[in-house]
Structures are given as C-alpha cells and as structure tokens.
C-alpha cells in the first residue's frame, strides 16, 4: 500500500518536474516585439522630389546624338504614366483573332501524337471538331487470287488508327 502510493506520487512529481523543465526550455525570455515599422521613408535624392529634365542637352543640332537622347528621355519622363494606359496597338485584337483562327488547326496538329491524330472538320457553325473514326469489324481479306503467303501481315489505316491484322491463308 505504502509503496504503491509512493510510486504514484513519484510519477506525479516527475511529471511536474518535466512540465517545469519543458516550460523553461520553450519559453524565450524576450521583451514583447512591438510594431516598429515606420511609415516615413528617407530618400536623399532630389530626383524623386522634383521632376528634373534629362541632364544632357544639345540645341540646334550641335550634337545630334545627344539631341535625340534628350528628346527620348524627356518624353519618357513626361508620358510615362499616360503611355502605360493607352499603349498603341500595332495589331488590333480583331486582326489577331482572325490570324489565329486559321492557325488553330495547324498548330493543334503539332501537339497531337501520331497515334491519337484525328482529322479536324469544320461544322456548319465554323467550330472545329475532330471526326471520330468509326470502329467496325474488319473482315479479313479473302485471298481470291492471292499469292500464297501463309501468314500475311497487313496494316490497315482507317481514320488515322492503325490496325494490325493478320489473316490466314491456306
């Protein structure tokens, strides 16, 4: 009786000890981290503040290279935000669509494996649909007048599917 109680209390004590150790182990004694993010950004350059012009200039054709560069850079600064919105289109959406319409089939073929190759056909709506090859029983060809190969292997291609059939001739 005494021993049983002892073992129980021993266990309890051990558990408590473990708990304390665990807590000590997994607790970081650090001050609470506060939000330190600042909403003020330091920037020592005037470039960001004032919209300055391009710093190389040439006038009246003195240095055509610089003159070109200057126009380009100054225009870029001015129209940077405008240009983003109204980007000039070289090819209109419609033209693009029309062009790709014809390409769908040709490019599509490229990605279809030989085995799964199917013919495409346009139905009355202009949609492109693959024709499903009709599966049917292939009657082994009878050899009327056939030469005397007793095992003939022939490949019959129907609708892109290869069927290998062997026929027995006697």
């Amino acid at each position: 009786m005494q021993r049983g109680l002892d073992s129980e209390t021993k266990k309890q004590l051990e558990e408590e000890e473990k708990k304390i150790i665990n807590e000590e182990h997994w607790y970081l004694d650090l001050p609470e981290l506060k939000e330190k993010e600042s909403f003020i950004i330091e920037e020592q350059s005037f470039l960001l503040c004032e919209d300055l012009l391009y710093r190389r200039m040439s006038f009246r054709g003195f240095n055509p290279e610089v003159e070109k560069l200057m126009l380009q850079m100054n225009a870029k600064n001015k129209e940077e935000d405008i240009e983003n919105e109204t980007m000039e289109l070289d090819v209109s959406d419609e033209e693009m669509a029309r062009r790709y319409e014809t390409l769908v089939g040709t490019i599509g073929k490229k990605f279809v494996k030989k085995r799964g190759q199917v013919n495409y056909e346009e139905d009355e709506n202009g949609d492109i649909k693959p024709i499903k090859p009709k599966k049917m029983f292939l009657k082994p060809q009878d050899s009327n007048g056939c030469h005397t190969t007793w095992l003939q292997r022939c490949l019959v291609k129907v609708g892109g599917l290869f069927w290998s059939s062997s026929c027995w001739c006697l």
């Binding site: 200039m57 006038f59 009246r60």
Partner: peptide
Amino acid sequence: LAPDCEIIQEVGKLYPLEIVFGM
C-alpha cells in the same frame, strides 16, 4: 533643370550648343 525653366529654352535659341549638368 526644372521642366518649366525658361532660361534653358532661351539659351537654346541663341547658338548651337551642348550642355551637361551635374547634380
């Protein structure tokens, strides 16, 4: 270098010239 600076525009009309500005 301010975008609306008249001085540079007026100077540019005087002679053919090239300028480089360093900050």
